[in-house]
Amino acid sequence: MLEQLRKKAKELLKNKEVEVIIGYQKSNNNSFTTPCFIESEDGVDRLTWDEHCVYNLSLYLKEVKGKVGIVAKGCDVKSIVALMQENQIDRDRIKIIALECQAQVDQEGQILEKCRTCQVHIPGMYDELVRSKTSPSKIESKESDKEYSVLEELEAKSTPERWQFWQRQFEKCIRCYACRQVCPLCYCSECISEKTAPQWILPSPSLKGNTTWNIVRAFHLAGRCIDCGECERVCPVNIPLRRLNKKMEKEIQTMFNYVPGLDSKKKPPLVDFRVDDPQEFIR
């Protein structure tokens, strides 16, 4: 697969179809990877592809100008779709080199939680698709029916218990905003957390401010989060942010039968209105 990836990347650069390719390269000490930006044909040999390519590179799409190629897994492609829906990127200037992905692992070598139930091992949108020669035409996750099993433990708790759980988590937050910065959908040029007049969210790391911050962010990602899990991965104090987003995802799915990141033509339900929308909450 790596050979093919490099070949495709080289072609794109050679034919001037793109000016830069965003991909993965081995990190300095070789044990993991790091994002890289390749601008010349001889640079493509730096590209790598293995189970350490955890980053969702679509994060960089908005800031890299001009024609750009991007190496993307199925989950990353979902965020590209979402960015298109939200008027953030112009599909015409982007070439997606999509990669079939079985699973990614963390630094300890554990398979990532999201990969266990992944539905997009073969990405849904691309210009070039790189697949492994040996894998079947359709790949299904062994636990694909357990999509929301991560929520079971929380959902079994009573409301006060749940609140307590999250209070304990939010207490840890140091407001480094890595979750926001790594999120492809937190692309706002100025985040609501930075607004000072009025100050919606207390800026210092206190339980109150942290709670508002984390809940507001979860709200802002409702119906938009494509579950790349990056926020949870980068949180230095291990707040299980994915669970928060997953819960929102589940609610949206049951209410509006909508899963973000699959169809760029669809309108996200929370910025759409129809006369027959469910309105149980107002009754």
């Binding site: 939200e86 008027n87 953030q88 692309y187 706002c188 040029s189 100025e190 309108k267 910025v271 759409d272």
Partner: peptide, 13 residues
């Protein structure tokens, strides 16, 4: 416009 990110959520709603 300094803050607006052009997501056009406002336009949709």
């Amino acid at each position: 416009v300094e803050i607006c990110s052009g997501c056009l959520a406002c336009k949709e709603v």
